[in-house]
Simulated assay, not measured.
Amino acid sequence: MFLKSITILKEKITNTKDYPFSLPLIKNNEVIHFSANVTFFVGENGSGKSTLLEAIAYQCGFNTAGGGRNNNHYVEASEAALGDYVRLSWLPKITNGFFMRSESFYQFATHIDEVGARDSYGGKSLHCQSHGESFLSLFKNRFGKKAIYLLDEPEAALSPARQLSLLTIIKELSNFSQFIIATHSPILLGYPDAQIISFDHGQLTEINYEDTDHYQITRRFLENRSKILKELFED
């Protein structure tokens, strides 16, 4: 691991009523520790997973619209509002890495075409591949150095089979790289020995895979599909 912890600089926050400073994530937590090379952020939408991931990317010097330190492109609403209010603790500090932001990946692919950097992504425009293929092309060709990789919902364009492919890529790189991943995928969360941090209930809590809502709801649905659908659709 390289990134050991994140400290929320509460003394710098002057308006706790504005987003994202109104989030329970900010009110109820001060230091987040990392204990594994692969860490997952889980929780309901709006709990602050992406907000914290963007803040980490900002402090790493990565483009918060998606990319690394040398990717200069702009996407509206990609500013890291929490970026100046966290401190990262490293041992050792590294500068290599990438912030993968699923919701602005189209703009990132356009940026790569504009700067003529296709060779670093498999030699083919990311726009000339399916959404899922372009995601995997990024993972296979751009990832590989001793680095920290920040992934925001990488499963967005990946089929279950390709999510398994992503797990193999993470496994290959995890011996010399660190991953922090915000996800809703019960497949990705099944990565062995990963640290899983739940953002639900305000207080960040480290939980086991089998205790995540993602695992429990998916398992319940698969084992009792007819019953659950009946309960959902009944008046």
Rank of each mutant, 00 (worst) to 15 (best):
E133I: 06
K27H: 11
F143P: 07
Y19L: 14
D119A: 14
G190I: 03
I94H: 02
V75W: 07
S104G: 04
E103I: 05
G67F: 03
Q129K: 13
M100Q: 10
D18M: 15
L23D: 11
L232D: 08
E114I: 12
N29F: 09
I26M: 04
S120E: 14
P192C: 06
N15C: 07
L173T: 02
L189C: 02
R118M: 13
A81P: 04
I112P: 00
A182N: 03
I170G: 00
F221S: 10
E44P: 09
D119C: 12
A80T: 08
K124G: 05
I197H: 00
I13M: 06
T95R: 09
M1C: 00
S165W: 10
N224K: 13
K140I: 07
F176L: 08
L173M: 09
L204V: 04
K17P: 08
Y121K: 03
T14V: 13
F98D: 02
D119M: 14
L167F: 11
F99D: 00
D113A: 04
T64Y: 03
V42D: 08
F179P: 01
F21A: 09
P154Q: 10
F221L: 15
N208W: 05
S47P: 09
R142V: 03
T16L: 13
K140W: 10
R118D: 14
F139R: 09
H73Q: 01
I207Y: 03
L136Y: 07
A182E: 00
G83P: 01
H131R: 15
Q203C: 08
P186C: 05
S185Y: 04
